[in-house]
Design a protein around this nucleic acid. Structure first.
Lengths: 240, 240
DNA sequence: ACCTGAACACCGTTCAAGT
DNA sequence: ACCTGAACACCGTTCAAGT
């Protein structure tokens, strides 16, 4: 169909249910992938099934998506984009709480998203933007930068499955626009930059620069939980 | 064993580096899979590469492992088995701390294991055994069962990426010995059974039995972290 | 009882070509 | 510039045999 050669705007046939046409575009591909995963589960999303869904040959997707990893990263970006802004009061505790619960709600709307996010955790721009906004709530609420750093680690596992080092997560597909604008990152994500700057210190042993101690951060978060439970226990129970 | 036809013991050639022979067995397959993933990364572990490593044809593995999922479950079992016992003082806080850190150490020894564990979280017997032991430390230390339930949820995301419902995790491959001994589970894992019993209550609305409220558990854990940080902040900072 | 060989129904992705 | 078609190099897994 189409007849794109001359006529202005060929009205799409609209008889076909999953109407393709009018060119793909990256966002249309990502949107379709998210919808397909919502409906059929992430495990049955393949380049081939997605192409069929869009009424197109598999290879057509590769014009808008580098490969399947890029597709998955893009799908996560879509979900993160759905988090949206939350009202801020200037008090970090209720503000952070609201924002984390909003993030959770977005993930729950797409049940496959948590698994995908955990399996890759690529630091795409929307991802960094969300984290930066969260850090911003802490610091503008007056929490010291070091404590903010640690609580971000502690929340990491809770918001999504960040196993280890928040900042050591795999950077976005390297080759992409990332390298081009790498130097612009501190400007775009000033709160993350502040944390990174505070976390870096000189190792007295080797004299080399060293990042954050993931074992220490793990124990910090663990003790936060255990101490908190202990407090709840003595308050409700023994009352001495 | 070896020359099973007649001769007593055929000495293996020993010229081949990754000496196969003497029959496979499930544990030998799992052990080899763990070693291979340690050395080459989980993404390059396939039924075919593993078979080659064992000097055997791919299909030979299927006699000892139901399929690839079962292989991955088995590999996780091996890691969980490496956690081993930890000394208990009778005070839940140091005891739990020690045990969780031991679990983390086991996972860190095999860097692929966290991702595999998160991606499936099958409730195999060793898995249940570890969780039961952890619950046991809380209850024998005197922590109330409800609080123990909640802190297990809070620790869930921390020990490994359990996103949601601890007890709603996919049960072990169904068909297996699981169903056969399903009724024996409370006896084998008494502490988990106690938690499950305490968590189930009648919904006043519908009158139906209802399990634990994962949203509430999430918020409990979130507030545990936020409250803890707030306490650290006022103690170190404002001091008013 | 355990292992083999060949085949099947899939993957993601490349390459050269079409319009 | 965008899409196509056919092919390649892989997967996990089945089935019917071998010993």
């Amino acid at each position: 169909m189409g007849g794109a050669t001359k006529g202005r705007d060929v009205v799409p046939d609209a008889t076909e249910s999953s109407a393709p046409r009018e060119g793909l575009s990256r966002t249309r591909v990502l949107r379709a992938a998210v919808d397909y995963a919502d409906a059929n589960g992430i495990e049955s999303l393949t380049m081939r099934t997605l192409a069929a869904e869009l009424g197109v040959v598999p290879m057509a997707l590769y014009k808008h998506v580098a490969n399947k990893d890029d597709l998955l990263d893009g799908m996560v970006e879509v979900i993160v984009g759905e988090i949206g802004p939350t009202p801020a009061s200037g008090h970090w505790k209720p503000d952070v709480r609201r924002r984390v619960l909003a993030a959770r709600a977005a993930l729950l709307r797409h049940r496959w998203s948590q698994a995908v996010l955990e399996s890759r955790a690529a630091m795409t721009a929307p991802m960094l933007g969300y984290l930066d906004s969260l850090v911003g709530l802490f610091v503008s609420g007056g929490l010291p930068i070091d404590l903010t750093h640690s609580v971000m680690h502690a929340l990491g596992n809770r918001m999504w499955g960040f196993g280890e080092d928040l900042f050591a997560a795999t950077p976005p597909s390297e080759t992409e626009s990332f390298n081009a604008q790498k130097d612009a990152l501190p400007a775009r994500f000033p709160n993350l930059a502040a944390i990174a700057a505070a976390a870096i210190h000189v190792d007295p042993e080797s004299g080399r620069l060293t990042g954050c101690d993931s074992q220490a951060e793990f124990e910090f978060a663990l003790d936060l939980v255990l101490d908190g439970v202990e407090r709840l226990d003595v308050r409700d129970g023994k009352e001495d």
